[in-house]
Nucleic acid binder design. Structure first.
Lengths: 338, 338
DNA sequence: GTGAAAGCGCTAACAG
DNA sequence: CTGTTAGCGCTTTCAC
């Protein structure tokens, strides 16, 4: 790309045209009340005439600070993260801040590159969904004076703020709902426990079973699926249906997985929920719009982002660990008459 | 928020510690080969020791240019736009550029605010989904030397580049598919024609009917819905079902609307497609995962963004109007046995 | 191969 | 109320 050819008009150009000094132009821009109405008008006319736009870099260089924050999520195309991003944006907007948003694709190198870029551009702070278990680099950033907020991950470092959702409680609520409905034998289609969310959700289900006096060893069939999407849900459900002692309810690690489960049950002519109850996780937009509306665990995604930005902007320098409680949304896939 | 307290370490600090001049440090950073290996090593050690990070504002102020582009979409939480954004990001990434992304919420004021911000920060160009019919302000920006690319909207101004999808052709393909299947009486659940996409899609359906020798006046029932979502689809479908001479197929302005249509048909025990064929638009991720997989018109969202960024980065200064062709994805909601 | 110094555009302090 | 001026941190000639 060719460099921008025309030199941008500067404050000096405006000053020349308005026949005032650069200081006066700067005053018109920043403290208009210190300038007499007549000269102010002249300056404003010159600004319009030249269609002058302040040079943000110079301004920022001088000011040393900037009203911008950065955010790095795993994937901007994932609805979970876009809702989070939207929450961030809304809070920053209130404070007159702007957001630089980027995806790391779970690649620590990409994450590092963006963090460097943000820091070079002097952002006030960054909100990051870490792409790996290691967060030392974020601690370093914090020590260098940037605000750092971890997204969707409780901080293991007390110096760093974080906002997360209590996955253990969410999964427990879902399991408890099924137990209350009389189910005593559950299937759980889950991802590998190396993913924190998966491990936490598994623990939550165990909690609920034990709390109800049921033995997880006999009452829970946890099935590990590799793809956390509809195909994974289909594969997992086929295994569940093939079991001799078949569970009466299936918990799914997310709504896409549940979609696959529903599809498979329909094909096998197993009625939902009478033949098999199904619960999802995330409560994505279409969960309530399916042929059999899906009971799911709603995550406060917008609030997650909003609160993260709030922590970033806080006057108080002390780190804070925020944990949101998810909410079970009950629909026909567990309580219907099908 | 309190200002960043610690003064950032500067190139001068590094120079002092390494006992060289600032010019040499700058050379190590930008043209390492011009520096003798020994001093380079000393400087690099100092950089690490102080964990020095270049000040991007100063760099940019000096350089006058910056490898950043801005994008403004209507809503970052809408999957259509996030896929577009992803395409932009991928292309910019290749060129070493970064993206500043923002949502206008279809509010021209918000759009203007972000545009000003981007310009102040010296972005090379902007990609914008205009929030209103007027694009004069974008032309002004272009005249001031910024690259401007219109997103999802053909440019009415030949000086501005644009990337869009041919909505008329997409809708025509959907209608033609139904006509080929023998349908001669179609319903179209559409939004108001003040929305360009809605008007274009309506025109496309007319095209297909006329082309097949059918009279739109008798063969097409266009129903205007206010909400372009599942509820709108439900309301529209209820009106279709109440018609004396009931159409045999329903085209929907987007997949969410189709979702509502399918839900309503199921409730009314109208089999799909034998009692009513259904076609959606957008081909969102879950379209193929529904109880009745949905025939839909796929938009090349990623390619749209990718190409927009490509135009922004182009060496060639001449504006270009790119129009993508959408692709019909046939599934069971039109060809199934239900 | 390295150093000195000018200057990018702006703001804020100080003088007048 | 307005003008003058010193830098913010960096890159880039131009000397040495």
């Amino acid at each position: 790309m060719p460099p921008r050819t025309k030199r941008r008009t500067s404050i000096a150009d405006v000053a020349r045209l308005a026949e005032v000094s650069v200081g006066t132009v700067s005053n018109v821009l920043n403290r208009p009340d210190r300038v007499s109405p007549t000269t102010r008008e002249r300056v404003e006319a010159a600004i319009t005439e030249l269609s002058f736009v302040r040079n943000g870099s110079a301004r920022q260089l001088r000011a040393g600070t900037i009203t911008t924050a950065g955010a790095i999520v795993l994937d901007v195309a994932n609805p979970f993260f876009t809702d989070v991003a939207r929450g961030i944006e809304d809070r920053l907007e209130e404070a007159g801040y702007t957001l630089m948003l980027a995806s790391s694709d779970e690649d620590p190198d990409r994450e590092a590159r963006y963090l460097k870029l943000f820091e070079e551009h002097g952002v006030q702070g960054v909100m990051v969904v870490p792409s790996g278990p290691d967060i030392d680099h974020l601690r370093t950033l914090h020590d260098r004076g940037l605000r750092v907020v971890l997204l969707d991950r409780p901080s293991t470092d007390p110096a760093l703020s974080s906002v997360a959702v209590d996955d253990r409680a969410g999964a427990a609520a879902a399991a408890r709902h099924l137990i209350d409905l009389g189910h005593e034998h559950l299937a759980f289609l889950n991802g590998p426990h190396t993913i924190r969310q998966c491990a936490d959700r598994s623990a939550g289900i165990h909690d609920a079973l034990v709390e109800a006096g049921l033995d997880p060893a006999t009452c829970l069939e946890e099935i590990t699926i590799t793809a956390l999407n509809a195909d994974g849900g289909q594969a997992g459900t086929e295994r569940v249906l093939a079991m001799e002692r078949r569970p009466t309810a299936t918990l799914c690690v997310n709504d896409l997985t549940a979609l696959g489960a529903l599809r498979t049950l329909r094909a096998a002519e197993v009625p939902v929920p009478s033949g098999m109850a199904v619960v999802g996780y995330d409560d994505v937009t279409f969960a309530g719009e399916l042929a059999t509306p899906l009971t799911s665990v709603r995550q406060p995604m917008h609030a997650l982002g909003y609160r993260a930005a709030d922590l970033l902007l806080a006057d108080d320098e002390t780190a804070e660990q925020v944990v949101f409680q998810p909410e079970l949304v009950v629909r026909e896939s567990t309580t219907g008459t099908g």
